[in-house]
């Protein structure tokens, strides 16, 4: 099975802090990491390769330094990588991003399965996976949490839904996005890391992908950010002080008064 895994380099948003005075993001010392959900995507691909054999290619759209996450992927055991990088890609929304990634994947030859993490922790849109599927004309199943059957022609997967899960048969070639329940990511391997050290990540730009500047990056995006501001919380905030017996009772009283808690039968 030939598997393409889409990965993204993101800032470690767990460590990004908002400066309370200036309401700006403090990013000193914030590392760039592989998007945590993509680790689950890699693990899913690695397990599939263990089961049915094949080849895994990791692909990423990003600036030149994003090659670091692709090398990391080699460290985890993927066979090959491809970086899609071009100044023209900058500022892309998900429409422009899927244009580049879909082209990149199409150029890999006969891919049986595309695997994406559920979402990227900087954008949080969860749009890229299904978007790539539509561009490539592939059926997709999102939020895969487990595999029931794996063979060359189809996958039977469990799709996480709000009230349970669906068991869905996905014909191949197809695309899946995965959630963390799909499996605990393995550590990188020494052999993988040694290979990664010497590995030269191939790069393709817009021209090699057959994309014009109007199709990618900021120019190729349909959506645009017009404002950025600090999150605020609506409603008054109060601090209750006193011994626990009092504050505990006070807060219940306040919630009852405001009809947040109903006492009536």
């Amino acid at each position: 099975m030939k598997i393409a895994v889409c990965i993204k380099q993101v800032p470690d948003t767990a460590n990004v802090k908002l400066d309370p005075e200036t309401h700006t993001l403090k990013r000193e010392g914030v590392e760039s990491i592989i998007n945590p959900f993509d680790l689950f995507a890699l693990e899913a691909a690695l397990r599939l390769r263990e089961q049915v054999g094949g080849e895994i290619v990791a692909i990423s759209m990003g600036p030149p330094q994003a090659e670091a996450v692709l090398k990391e992927a080699i460290g985890y055991g993927v066979d090959e990588c491809l970086l899609l990088s071009d100044r023209a890609f900058a500022g892309a929304d998900t429409w422009a991003t899927t244009a580049a990634l879909a082209s990149g994947i199409a150029g890999l030859g006969e891919v049986d399965l595309v695997v994406c993490g559920k979402q990227a922790v900087d954008g949080d849109t969860a749009q890229v996976g299904p978007g790539i599927a539509r561009r490539l004309g592939l059926p997709h199943v999102a939020f895969v949490k487990g595999f029931r059957e794996v063979d060359g022609g189809r996958l039977v997967v469990e799709r996480q839904m709000d009230d349970g899960f669906d068991v869905v048969a996905l014909p191949l070639p197809g695309l899946i996005t995965v959630v963390r329940e799909v499996g605990e990511p393995r550590p990188p391997s020494l052999k993988g890391k040694m290979r990664a050290k010497k590995y030269e990540v191939p790069t393709k730009g817009a021209a090699e992908l057959g994309l014009t500047p109007e199709q990618v990056g900021l120019a190729g995006s349909f959506t645009q950010v017009v404002k950025v501001f600090a999150p605020t919380v609506s409603g008054d905030r109060q601090r209750l002080e006193g011994p626990p017996e009092e504050t505990g009772a006070q807060v219940i009283d306040a919630l009852v008064d405001n009809q947040v808690i109903m006492l009536g039968g």
Binding site: P188, L190, K191
Partner: peptide, 20 residues
């Protein structure tokens, strides 16, 4: 199992037997 996946049991195995 994770140590095995990381190839850490290969450290002193000679290369001709698949080790490091």
């Amino acid at each position: 199992k994770a140590l095995a996946q990381a190839d850490l049991f290969q450290i002193i195995i000679p290369e001709q037997y698949g080790g490091l």
